[in-house]
Protein backbone atom coordinates (compact mmCIF):
# COMPACT_ATOMS: atom_id res chain seq x y z
CA UNK A 1 0.00 0.00 0.00
CA UNK A 2 1.32 3.42 -0.81
CA UNK A 3 2.23 5.48 2.19
CA UNK A 4 0.88 8.94 2.44
CA UNK A 5 3.68 11.11 1.25
CA UNK A 6 3.34 14.77 1.91
CA UNK A 7 6.09 17.15 1.11
CA UNK A 8 6.63 20.57 2.50
CA UNK A 9 5.16 23.50 0.58
CA UNK A 10 8.64 24.91 0.07
CA UNK A 11 9.35 22.26 -2.54
CA UNK A 12 8.34 24.36 -5.51
CA UNK A 13 10.74 27.10 -4.63
CA UNK A 14 13.46 24.57 -3.99
CA UNK A 15 12.78 22.90 -7.32
CA UNK A 16 12.96 26.20 -9.13
CA UNK A 17 16.08 27.22 -7.26
CA UNK A 18 17.71 23.93 -8.22
CA UNK A 19 16.83 24.49 -11.86
CA UNK A 20 18.17 28.01 -11.76
CA UNK A 21 21.21 26.86 -9.85
CA UNK A 22 22.00 24.43 -12.63
CA UNK A 23 21.60 27.10 -15.30
CA UNK A 24 23.72 29.57 -13.36
CA UNK A 25 26.30 26.86 -12.74
CA UNK A 26 26.50 25.97 -16.40
CA UNK A 27 26.83 29.59 -17.48
CA UNK A 28 29.51 30.07 -14.83
CA UNK A 29 31.36 26.98 -16.01
CA UNK A 30 31.25 28.21 -19.60
CA UNK A 31 32.42 31.74 -18.69
CA UNK A 32 35.11 30.49 -16.32
CA UNK A 33 36.59 28.03 -18.75
CA UNK A 34 36.39 30.76 -21.39
CA UNK A 35 38.35 33.13 -19.13
CA UNK A 36 40.96 30.45 -18.42
CA UNK A 37 41.43 29.86 -22.13
CA UNK A 38 41.49 33.60 -22.76
CA UNK A 39 44.25 34.07 -20.19
CA UNK A 40 46.36 31.51 -22.03
CA UNK A 41 45.47 32.38 -25.62
CA UNK A 42 44.21 35.90 -26.22
CA UNK A 43 42.58 34.77 -29.45
CA UNK A 44 39.90 32.85 -27.61
CA UNK A 45 37.34 35.64 -27.32
CA UNK A 46 38.10 37.10 -30.74
CA UNK A 47 34.99 37.34 -32.90
CA UNK A 48 36.63 35.05 -35.40
CA UNK A 49 37.17 32.29 -32.84
CA UNK A 50 33.73 32.70 -31.32
CA UNK A 51 32.18 32.18 -34.76
CA UNK A 52 34.39 29.16 -35.34
CA UNK A 53 33.30 27.78 -31.99
CA UNK A 54 29.62 28.33 -32.77
CA UNK A 55 30.00 26.72 -36.17
CA UNK A 56 31.77 23.73 -34.73
CA UNK A 57 28.99 23.13 -32.25
CA UNK A 58 26.16 23.37 -34.75
CA UNK A 59 25.99 19.65 -35.55
CA UNK A 60 26.28 18.75 -31.90
CA UNK A 61 23.59 21.27 -30.95
CA UNK A 62 21.11 20.32 -33.67
CA UNK A 63 21.38 16.64 -32.82
CA UNK A 64 21.28 17.31 -29.08
CA UNK A 65 18.01 19.30 -29.32
CA UNK A 66 16.26 16.35 -30.91
CA UNK A 67 17.97 13.88 -28.60
CA UNK A 68 16.65 15.93 -25.67
CA UNK A 69 13.08 15.22 -26.83
CA UNK A 70 13.89 11.50 -27.04
CA UNK A 71 15.36 11.55 -23.53
CA UNK A 72 12.42 13.64 -22.27
CA UNK A 73 10.23 10.71 -23.31
CA UNK A 74 12.38 8.40 -21.22
CA UNK A 75 13.99 6.81 -24.28
CA UNK A 76 17.43 7.13 -25.85
CA UNK A 77 18.63 7.24 -29.45
CA UNK A 78 22.12 5.79 -29.90
CA UNK A 79 21.84 5.56 -33.68
CA UNK A 80 22.24 9.30 -34.37
CA UNK A 81 25.97 9.19 -35.11
CA UNK A 82 25.51 6.37 -37.61
CA UNK A 83 22.55 8.10 -39.25
CA UNK A 84 24.69 11.23 -39.55
CA UNK A 85 27.25 9.26 -41.58
CA UNK A 86 24.77 7.16 -43.53
CA UNK A 87 22.76 10.17 -44.73
CA UNK A 88 25.80 12.07 -45.95
CA UNK A 89 27.11 8.95 -47.68
CA UNK A 90 23.72 8.18 -49.25
CA UNK A 91 23.62 11.71 -50.62
CA UNK A 92 27.17 11.40 -51.96
CA UNK A 93 26.79 7.96 -53.54
CA UNK A 94 23.44 8.72 -55.20
CA UNK A 95 24.50 12.14 -56.41
CA UNK A 96 28.05 11.45 -57.51
CA UNK A 97 27.84 7.80 -58.49
CA UNK A 98 30.56 5.37 -57.56
CA UNK A 99 30.51 3.29 -54.45
CA UNK A 100 28.28 0.25 -54.73
CA UNK A 101 25.82 1.88 -57.14
CA UNK A 102 26.13 1.77 -60.94
CA UNK A 103 24.08 4.95 -61.48
CA UNK A 104 23.63 8.44 -60.13
CA UNK A 105 20.72 10.88 -59.83
CA UNK A 106 20.30 14.67 -59.64
CA UNK A 107 21.29 16.33 -56.37
CA UNK A 108 17.78 17.11 -55.23
CA UNK A 109 16.66 13.49 -55.49
CA UNK A 110 19.79 12.29 -53.74
CA UNK A 111 19.11 14.78 -50.96
CA UNK A 112 15.54 13.60 -50.59
CA UNK A 113 16.65 9.98 -50.56
CA UNK A 114 19.20 10.75 -47.83
CA UNK A 115 16.51 12.35 -45.68
CA UNK A 116 14.10 9.48 -46.41
CA UNK A 117 16.65 6.96 -45.22
CA UNK A 118 16.84 8.86 -41.94
CA UNK A 119 13.04 9.01 -41.62
CA UNK A 120 12.87 5.26 -42.24
CA UNK A 121 15.43 4.50 -39.53
CA UNK A 122 13.71 6.85 -37.11
CA UNK A 123 10.36 5.19 -37.80
CA UNK A 124 11.92 1.74 -37.38
CA UNK A 125 13.43 2.81 -34.05
CA UNK A 126 10.02 4.04 -32.91
CA UNK A 127 8.28 0.92 -34.17
CA UNK A 128 10.65 -1.38 -32.30
CA UNK A 129 10.42 0.73 -29.16
CA UNK A 130 6.70 1.45 -28.99
CA UNK A 131 5.08 -1.47 -30.82
CA UNK A 132 7.46 -4.40 -30.35
CA UNK A 133 8.42 -2.89 -26.98
CA UNK A 134 12.15 -3.48 -27.25
CA UNK A 135 14.06 -1.07 -24.98
CA UNK A 136 15.18 1.86 -27.11
CA UNK A 137 18.74 1.31 -25.92
CA UNK A 138 18.83 -2.04 -27.74
CA UNK A 139 16.77 -1.03 -30.77
CA UNK A 140 18.86 2.04 -31.52
CA UNK A 141 22.10 0.22 -30.71
CA UNK A 142 21.08 -2.27 -33.39
CA UNK A 143 20.44 0.52 -35.87
CA UNK A 144 23.76 2.11 -34.99
CA UNK A 145 25.43 -1.02 -36.32
CA UNK A 146 23.00 -1.47 -39.23
CA UNK A 147 23.45 2.12 -40.39
CA UNK A 148 27.22 1.98 -40.06
CA UNK A 149 27.36 -1.26 -42.02
CA UNK A 150 25.08 0.08 -44.74
CA UNK A 151 27.21 3.19 -45.00
CA UNK A 152 30.40 1.21 -45.50
CA UNK A 153 28.81 -1.20 -47.99
CA UNK A 154 27.16 1.60 -49.95
CA UNK A 155 30.33 3.65 -50.26
CA UNK A 156 32.78 0.77 -50.57
CA UNK A 157 34.50 2.58 -47.73
CA UNK A 158 35.72 5.27 -50.11
CA UNK A 159 35.78 9.05 -49.70
CA UNK A 160 33.59 11.34 -51.84
CA UNK A 161 34.55 14.85 -52.83
CA UNK A 162 32.01 16.56 -55.14
CA UNK A 163 34.38 19.28 -56.34
CA UNK A 164 36.93 16.77 -57.64
CA UNK A 165 34.54 14.03 -58.72
CA UNK A 166 34.39 12.49 -62.19
CA UNK A 167 32.01 13.17 -63.75
CA UNK A 168 31.89 16.66 -62.22
CA UNK A 169 28.37 17.62 -61.08
CA UNK A 170 26.78 20.65 -62.70
CA UNK A 171 27.88 24.06 -61.36
CA UNK A 172 24.38 24.85 -60.14
CA UNK A 173 24.28 21.69 -58.11
CA UNK A 174 27.73 22.27 -56.68
CA UNK A 175 26.78 25.81 -55.75
CA UNK A 176 23.59 24.76 -54.06
CA UNK A 177 25.46 22.04 -52.21
CA UNK A 178 28.04 24.53 -51.01
CA UNK A 179 25.40 27.06 -49.89
CA UNK A 180 23.74 24.46 -47.64
CA UNK A 181 26.54 24.25 -45.13
CA UNK A 182 29.65 25.97 -46.40
CA UNK A 183 28.52 29.50 -47.21
CA UNK A 184 28.39 32.59 -45.06
CA UNK A 185 25.55 34.82 -43.95
CA UNK A 186 26.05 38.60 -43.73
CA UNK A 187 28.66 39.77 -41.18
CA UNK A 188 30.73 36.70 -41.94
CA UNK A 189 28.52 34.42 -39.91
CA UNK A 190 28.85 30.81 -41.09
CA UNK A 191 25.55 29.49 -42.39
CA UNK A 192 25.80 26.55 -40.01
CA UNK A 193 25.42 29.03 -37.15
CA UNK A 194 22.23 30.16 -38.87
CA UNK A 195 21.02 26.56 -39.05
CA UNK A 196 21.81 26.13 -35.36
CA UNK A 197 19.85 29.28 -34.49
CA UNK A 198 16.90 28.18 -36.65
CA UNK A 199 16.77 24.74 -35.06
CA UNK A 200 17.17 26.30 -31.62
CA UNK A 201 14.04 28.39 -32.26
CA UNK A 202 12.16 25.42 -33.71
CA UNK A 203 12.90 23.14 -30.77
CA UNK A 204 12.49 25.90 -28.21
CA UNK A 205 8.93 26.40 -29.44
CA UNK A 206 8.27 22.72 -29.88
CA UNK A 207 9.36 21.87 -26.37
CA UNK A 208 8.13 24.87 -24.43
CA UNK A 209 5.24 26.37 -26.36
CA UNK A 210 3.27 23.58 -28.02
CA UNK A 211 0.82 20.92 -26.93
CA UNK A 212 3.33 18.44 -28.32
CA UNK A 213 6.05 19.50 -25.88
CA UNK A 214 3.57 19.70 -23.01
CA UNK A 215 2.45 16.13 -23.55
CA UNK A 216 6.01 14.88 -24.09
CA UNK A 217 6.80 16.03 -20.56
CA UNK A 218 3.73 14.19 -19.29
CA UNK A 219 4.43 10.96 -21.17
CA UNK A 220 8.05 10.92 -20.07
CA UNK A 221 7.19 11.83 -16.49
CA UNK A 222 4.66 9.07 -15.98
CA UNK A 223 3.89 6.71 -18.86
CA UNK A 224 1.19 4.86 -16.88
CA UNK A 225 -0.63 8.05 -16.06
CA UNK A 226 -0.31 9.14 -19.68
CA UNK A 227 -1.92 5.90 -20.76
CA UNK A 228 -4.74 6.37 -18.26
CA UNK A 229 -5.23 9.93 -19.54
CA UNK A 230 -5.30 8.51 -23.08
CA UNK A 231 -2.44 10.56 -24.48
CA UNK A 232 -1.22 9.51 -27.94
CA UNK A 233 1.97 7.89 -26.65
CA UNK A 234 2.79 5.81 -29.72
CA UNK A 235 2.32 8.66 -32.18
CA UNK A 236 4.54 10.90 -30.11
CA UNK A 237 7.29 8.29 -30.00
CA UNK A 238 7.24 8.05 -33.77
CA UNK A 239 7.43 11.81 -34.18
CA UNK A 240 10.29 12.13 -31.72
CA UNK A 241 12.43 9.30 -33.08
CA UNK A 242 11.89 10.51 -36.64
CA UNK A 243 12.84 14.05 -35.60
CA UNK A 244 15.97 12.74 -33.96
CA UNK A 245 16.98 10.80 -37.07
CA UNK A 246 16.15 13.74 -39.35
CA UNK A 247 18.27 16.13 -37.30
CA UNK A 248 21.15 13.65 -37.43
CA UNK A 249 20.78 13.52 -41.22
CA UNK A 250 20.62 17.31 -41.44
CA UNK A 251 23.77 17.63 -39.34
CA UNK A 252 25.57 15.02 -41.43
CA UNK A 253 24.65 16.69 -44.73
CA UNK A 254 25.56 20.19 -43.46
CA UNK A 255 28.96 18.98 -42.28
CA UNK A 256 29.48 17.18 -45.59
CA UNK A 257 28.75 20.44 -47.36
CA UNK A 258 31.04 22.44 -45.05
CA UNK A 259 33.97 20.04 -45.20
CA UNK A 260 33.43 19.36 -48.89
CA UNK A 261 34.00 15.66 -48.58
CA UNK A 262 32.66 12.68 -46.74
CA UNK A 263 34.59 9.57 -45.77
CA UNK A 264 33.75 6.25 -44.24
CA UNK A 265 32.52 6.15 -40.64
CA UNK A 266 32.05 9.86 -40.24
CA UNK A 267 29.94 10.82 -37.23
CA UNK A 268 30.67 7.63 -35.38
CA UNK A 269 32.13 9.54 -32.44
CA UNK A 270 29.18 11.95 -32.14
CA UNK A 271 26.82 9.83 -30.02
CA UNK A 272 28.63 10.43 -26.80
CA UNK A 273 28.87 14.24 -26.96
CA UNK A 274 25.24 14.48 -28.10
CA UNK A 275 23.94 12.51 -25.12
CA UNK A 276 26.45 14.21 -22.83
CA UNK A 277 25.20 17.65 -23.87
CA UNK A 278 21.61 16.67 -23.05
CA UNK A 279 22.54 15.19 -19.69
CA UNK A 280 24.86 18.05 -18.72
CA UNK A 281 21.94 20.31 -19.61
CA UNK A 282 19.94 18.80 -16.76
CA UNK A 283 17.75 16.25 -18.52
CA UNK A 284 16.93 13.07 -16.64
CA UNK A 285 17.51 9.78 -18.41
CA UNK A 286 14.38 8.53 -16.60
CA UNK A 287 12.31 10.95 -18.64
CA UNK A 288 10.10 13.87 -17.77
CA UNK A 289 12.79 16.47 -17.13
CA UNK A 290 14.81 18.47 -19.61
CA UNK A 291 14.85 21.85 -21.34
CA UNK A 292 16.16 23.16 -24.64
CA UNK A 293 18.09 26.08 -23.07
CA UNK A 294 19.78 23.58 -20.75
CA UNK A 295 20.74 21.40 -23.68
CA UNK A 296 22.10 24.43 -25.53
CA UNK A 297 24.26 25.27 -22.51
CA UNK A 298 25.44 21.68 -22.27
CA UNK A 299 26.46 21.67 -25.92
CA UNK A 300 28.12 25.07 -25.52
CA UNK A 301 30.20 23.88 -22.58
CA UNK A 302 31.44 20.89 -24.56
CA UNK A 303 32.20 23.09 -27.58
CA UNK A 304 34.07 25.67 -25.47
CA UNK A 305 36.22 22.94 -23.98
CA UNK A 306 36.96 21.36 -27.34
CA UNK A 307 37.79 24.70 -28.92
CA UNK A 308 39.84 26.02 -26.01
CA UNK A 309 41.81 22.83 -25.59
CA UNK A 310 42.54 22.80 -29.31
CA UNK A 311 43.82 26.39 -29.03
CA UNK A 312 46.08 25.31 -26.19
CA UNK A 313 47.41 22.61 -28.43
CA UNK A 314 46.07 19.76 -26.36
CA UNK A 315 45.76 16.80 -28.68
CA UNK A 316 42.47 15.20 -29.63
CA UNK A 317 43.17 12.17 -27.46
CA UNK A 318 43.63 14.24 -24.31
CA UNK A 319 40.48 16.20 -25.22
CA UNK A 320 38.51 12.98 -24.96
CA UNK A 321 39.67 12.69 -21.35
CA UNK A 322 38.45 16.20 -20.58
CA UNK A 323 35.04 15.61 -22.12
CA UNK A 324 34.66 12.43 -20.07
CA UNK A 325 35.65 14.17 -16.84
CA UNK A 326 33.34 17.10 -17.47
CA UNK A 327 30.35 14.89 -18.23
CA UNK A 328 30.77 12.72 -15.15
CA UNK A 329 31.62 15.74 -13.01
CA UNK A 330 28.59 17.77 -14.11
CA UNK A 331 26.15 14.94 -13.52
CA UNK A 332 27.74 14.02 -10.18
CA UNK A 333 27.50 17.62 -9.03
CA UNK A 334 23.86 17.71 -10.08
CA UNK A 335 23.07 14.51 -8.22
CA UNK A 336 24.86 15.62 -5.06
CA UNK A 337 23.04 18.97 -5.01
CA UNK A 338 19.74 17.23 -5.48
CA UNK A 339 20.41 14.77 -2.66
CA UNK A 340 21.43 17.57 -0.34
CA UNK A 341 18.19 19.35 -1.14
CA UNK A 342 16.10 16.24 -0.56
CA UNK A 343 17.86 15.18 2.58
CA UNK A 344 15.09 16.38 4.83
CA UNK A 345 12.92 13.48 3.89
CA UNK A 346 11.54 11.89 7.02
CA UNK A 347 11.43 8.47 5.49
CA UNK A 348 14.28 6.29 6.68
CA UNK A 349 15.28 3.50 4.40
CA UNK A 350 17.77 1.09 5.66
Amino acid sequence: MASIKVESPGKRKRGLALDQLRTVGLVLAIVLSGLVFQSQRSAFFSSENVLTLLRSMSSLGIMAFAQMLVILLGEIDLSVGAIYGLSATTLAVLWLGGGALPFHVPFIFALMAALLVAVAIGAANAFLTSVVKIPSFIATLGFLSLAQGSELLLSNASTFNPAYNTPLPSRGELRFFHILGGSQLPLGIPIQVGWLAAMLCLFLFLRHRTLFGFRLVAIGGNPTAAEIARLPIRKYKFVVFILSALMAALAGILDFSYVGSVGPNSGGSLVFPVIAAVVIGGASLNGGWGTIPGTLLGATLLAVLANGLALLGVGAFAQLLFVGFVTIGAVTLDRVTRQLANRRSSRVTK
Binding site: V217, A218, G220, G221, N222, T224, A225, I228, A229, W289
Partner: peptide, 12 residues
Protein backbone atom coordinates in the same frame (compact mmCIF):
# COMPACT_ATOMS: atom_id res chain seq x y z
CA UNK B 1 -6.72 4.02 -10.98
CA UNK B 2 -6.31 3.28 -7.29
CA UNK B 3 -2.67 4.18 -7.26
CA UNK B 4 -2.21 7.91 -7.05
CA UNK B 5 1.30 7.80 -8.46
CA UNK B 6 -0.14 6.14 -11.54
CA UNK B 7 -2.52 8.97 -12.28
CA UNK B 8 -0.52 12.09 -11.64
CA UNK B 9 2.54 13.71 -13.14
CA UNK B 10 5.00 14.52 -10.39
CA UNK B 11 7.31 16.37 -12.75
CA UNK B 12 4.64 18.92 -13.59
Amino acid sequence: SANRTEMLFHNM
